[in-house]
Design a protein around this nucleic acid. Structure first.
Lengths: 210, 210
DNA sequence: ATAAAAGTTAAACAAACGTTTGTCAATTTT
DNA sequence: AAAATTGACAAACGTTTGTTTAACTTTTAT
């Protein structure tokens, strides 16, 4: 139950909190539970984070800081549309795969009202919105139509996120393992889906059935 | 603050709970707050729902019961692919529009661990998964590839859901109002996006910019 | 009209909540 | 070596949590 002690206490608290927030939500995870899992005294939470919501602030900052760094900066003009689309889907999938709980906590708590965090959330979310919008507009859409590209960009992110949120059900119902092969397949599927739609998927019969 | 008294107490509790759950999440919403908003004594919650999680059970049941009823039963063979796609996107958008908070509560709490509800969630979610999968497979994809159509179906639902979860940010950043015109435009956009992808959207220049 | 059932209430329950206090050990600075 | 700062701890703080009890009123059934 207790955590590994080879990390700094502050980091141990953050790790434990992310795990518990992902499992039961921010409000349902108690500070005693977090402290126990982090193998740390309860008082250390206020000492390092100024209270429970301070942890959530740190979580949100960490997610957005890391996420906004994942894209290679430029869309190469000489690459195919599919390859350019892949340059968006791949980093998103890989990032969420490596930071599943961090992403799920942030995604889950974003629409919820936590008074002390409202400003931080609004600021980071609008930045996220613009980033996704600009990445999508590099695919041949009108850059002036930022609203449309924002809707598409958030749809893409949410669609990928959904595969992680529903992982337990999907694995059980369709007898699927979330392994390397699956993530490769998911990248292909999402890429084709968002580039050419369901008709694009139906046309590409070369893909094997899973 | 207090609710309208022309409804039955049980329904008032449910309405108040859905509103508060949507605003701050299940765990953060207290029974006293719910009772106050419903204009009902606290004890009535245990009386009608056997406690707080009983309300959540009722919420989940209501969402899935209502959602699984929205689709017209058959995909008409003589309609265009776009019209058949629209027969999926339109009811989803309309339903979430009319039941935004109910949908947001369910969507938000689904991945979270609430011990007494695990079974109910699993059962309903897998049913939801299969329903979405079968609807998508009617669009020209191989019905035997249920896993692929499930991924597409959940992506579609999540993409639409995202537009409601991010509504405050989107409205502010892009100066958009969520009115009839917006929902019509959203239906067009999501329909084209999932049927023909971003390239389909880029090709359809007849659509006006918002 | 009488009895039984259902609905409603205020008050109290123990348990859990997040935070803070005061004390002591360890480290760093002077 | 002395002083100051930082890190860590057990214990207690006052609230708030979800639930239940017992008394009471209203409605329904006999």
């Amino acid at each position: 139950m207790a955590a590994k002690n080879h990390k700094e206490p502050k980091q141990r608290i953050l790790d434990a909190a992310i795990n518990l927030f992902a499992q039961k939500g921010f409000a349902a995870a108690g500070v005693r539970e977090i402290a126990k899992k982090a193998d740390v005294n309860i008082a250390m939470i206020s000492y390092y984070f100024n209270g429970k919501v301070g942890i959530m602030k740190a979580v949100i900052k960490e997610f957005f800081d890391q996420f906004l760094e994942i894209f290679s900066e430029i869309n190469e003009k000489n690459k195919s549309p599919e390859e350019n689309m892949r340059l968006i889907t791949r980093p998103i999938i890989n990032f969420i795969r490596s930071n599943t709980k961090l992403a799920m906590v942030t995604y889950n708590e974003l629409p919820l009202d936590i008074p002390e965090i409202t400003e931080l959330k609004a600021e980071r979310t609008s930045f996220f919105l613009k980033k996704m919008s600009s990445r999508i507009s590099g695919l041949g859409l009108d850059p002036k139509d930022a609203f449309r590209t924002a809707v598409i960009g958030t749809s893409l992110f949410s669609a990928i996120m959904m595969q992680f949120r529903f992982r337990p059900v999907i694995e059980r119902v369709y007898k699927v393992k979330y392994d390397d092969a699956y993530y490769k397949w998911l990248e292909d599927t999402i890429t084709t889906l968002f580039l050419n739609g369901i008709q694009g998927i139906a046309a590409g019969k070369k893909k094997q059935v899973r």
